[in-house]
């Protein structure tokens, strides 16, 4: 009869990742797979889904995009926030020869950082392509590098790294290197391009989608994507 009620946790550290993104580390632990999410609640404000960026201690990387995330960004070390989860289907680490190619667009780099840590801990070769519109919006690229990933940075305006889309860089990398699996998270347009790329190069892929979630429990149907529920069947879907 324990249910799955929100748990309160204290913020033990806050890191400003870029102009719009903060990483909050909590005094809580979860047992999560990279790609899974939690519902983060502030009483009196709102509750929204966020990718788990580390489970031990529980960590979220949150972009300021609306009223709720603005309130989260106003929190200080020692303040509390509430979470329930982990929910959904995460990334599955696939066996195979070659590099594990991670493609993160914008905020999509956040859940991939968790995946990269697991992949590196398992001794896998990881190439992380971190894309953003502009240099100021690049996310976690130093963290991927510190984990021992080969990092390729690209921006749409060329203000950092090469100029272009992450998926174009991915195509070049895949032509050059043997790739075991592609893992991607980012805007819907980028994910569609990743799907095409995986089909074109006959590569197995997994993409993490965003959905308009309410319940997070697979009952309300708000986050439908075709016949699938992003919260339960995803957020990670197999492509290619």
């Amino acid at each position: 009869m324990s249910g799955n009620l929100p748990s309160a946790a204290r913020i033990v550290s806050i890191t400003e990742e870029n102009v719009r993104v903060k990483t909050l580390v909590l005094n809580a632990r979860a047992q999560a797979q990279p790609g899974q999410f939690a519902m983060v609640w502030l009483p009196g404000a709102d509750e929204k889904p966020f990718s788990i960026v580390d489970d031990h201690p529980l960590t979220f990387t949150i972009a300021r995009v609306g009223p709720f995330t603005q309130q989260v960004h106003a929190l200080n070390v020692g303040d509390r926030l509430w979470w329930r989860g982990p929910f959904g289907r995460g990334f599955e680490i696939v066996e195979g020869n070659g590099a594990h190619l991670l493609i993160g667009g914008g905020y999509g780099a956040a859940p991939l950082a968790f995946l990269a840590r697991r992949l590196r801990a398992a001794g896998r070769q990881v190439i992380a392509i971190i894309g953003a519109k502009t240099k100021a919006e690049l996310l976690l690229e130093a963290r991927f590098a510190a984990m021992g990933c080969t990092v390729v940075v690209t921006t749409e305006d060329g203000s950092a790294g090469g100029r272009g889309l992450a998926t174009d860089v991915a195509r070049d990398v895949a032509h050059r290197e043997r790739v075991a699996t592609v893992y991607a998270c980012g805007p819907e347009g980028m994910l569609a391009a990743v799907e095409r790329l995986c089909a074109e190069l006959h590569l197995p892929g997994q993409v993490s989608r965003e959905g308009y979630m309410r319940c997070g429990l697979g009952v309300c149907g708000s986050c439908h994507h075709g016949p699938w529920l992003v919260c339960r069947d995803g957020p990670v879907f197999t492509v290619g």
Binding site: K48, R214, L217, V219
Partner: peptide
């Protein structure tokens, strides 16, 4: 639009919801 979140909770014996007819 329905109600803001949280809208559905697993309280242990089942669910409690106020999705608000979106």
């Amino acid at each position: 639009a329905g109600h803001p979140n949280p809208t559905v909770i697993d309280w242990g014996g089942g669910l409690i919801n106020a999705v608000g007819l979106p």
